[in-house]
């Protein structure tokens, strides 16, 4: 492919500038959803176009890009997006969290602690945390504007009434900087604490819903809960079958036709690094 026929990182400069303006505004108002135009990307909306546009807008020639899908670097979606940017931006890519300057993710935050200067880019299917509770978009905007979030707790109240605890395991709503309630995208609730006062920049792009929002470094990100039912990040009570890790988020996999289950780290980079250091189950 002749890369000169594309602008650097696929999007034209004007579009990138518009997205950067939205990103700056989003960083200035942590957790607030900023509308943006959302261009067509060479894949269907709902497959990460929001995250890709954000990545395209912030990536530079010296960046090192990592792309994960559910924690894994080697799944189709992650591989295609990584290849895409290596071709249209010519940037170096990596699977190592600590090497990356830019990490585009679908539904996980790496286990390896993030450091200052790193940027996380999230692919977001539904940016509105109130969307199942309040059908009117005009009304949800008003609720955000007035910080009327009682309804969010109604949902959590109901969960406890029905199941004895909060069973929400993904996309668990958070309060950002004491002001906006935000959908952290469908990351497991287990990852929510990693957002709190994180030294990295977190950028969220919802391509289909045309919204961008952000959490700047060292910002309070508190998972909503009740005083007598505090937030508890859930993970499987098991150790990774490959590296023996008990502190990482585990995926449950079926390994044969008899329904035998095993748990392995969802973060493939983390798991590999542990094994190269000699850790085993």
């Amino acid at each position: 492919m002749n890369t000169t026929s594309y602008t650097f990182a696929y999007l034209d400069e004007q579009t990138k500038r518009e997205i950067r303006r939205a990103l700056l505004k989003a960083l200035a108002i942590p957790g607030h959803q900023v509308p943006f135009a959302s261009r067509e990307m060479p894949l269907a909306r709902g497959w990460g176009t929001g995250g890709m546009q954000v990545t395209a807008a912030v990536i530079g020639r010296n960046d090192v890009l990592k792309v994960i899908d559910q924690g894994a670097d080697d799944t189709t979606n992650a591989v295609s997006i990584r290849q895409f940017f290596s071709r249209v931006a010519g940037v170096r890519t990596t699977t190592r969290t600590e090497e990356a300057t830019l990490i585009q993710t679908r539904h996980r935050i790496p286990e390896t602690p993030l450091r200052p200067g790193q940027i996380m880019v999230y692919q977001v299917p539904q940016p509105e945390p109130l969307w199942r509770l309040e059908p009117s978009r005009a009304e949800t905007r008003r609720l955000h504007a007035l910080a009327e979030y009682g309804i969010m707790h109604v949902k959590l109240y109901e969960d406890i009434a029905q199941h004895g605890r909060i069973t929400l395991a993904y996309d668990y709503p958070v309060l950002v900087h004491g002001r906006y309630v935000m959908a952290p995208s469908p990351i497991p609730a287990f990852d929510n604490p990693k957002l709190h006062r994180s030294p990295a920049i977190h950028l969220f792009g919802a391509g289909r819903e045309k919204r961008i929002y952000a959490v700047p470094p060292y910002t309070d990100v508190i998972s909503l809960a009740f005083e007598d039912h505090p937030f508890r990040p859930w993970k499987a009570e098991a150790a990774c079958a490959l590296c023996g890790s008990t502190e990482s988020y585990l995926d449950e996999i079926l390994i044969d036709d008899r329904g035998t289950r095993r748990y392995i780290c969802s973060d493939t980079d983390w798991c590999e690094r542990r094994r190269t250091r000699g850790k085993t189950a």
Binding site: G150, I151, H153, V154, Y157, I160, F226, E227, D228, H229
Partner: peptide, 11 residues
């Protein structure tokens, strides 16, 4: 709901 809207956070 109104209690929660008014800030009640003890389930």
């Amino acid at each position: 709901e109104r209690l929660m809207a008014a800030g009640a956070r003890h389930w």
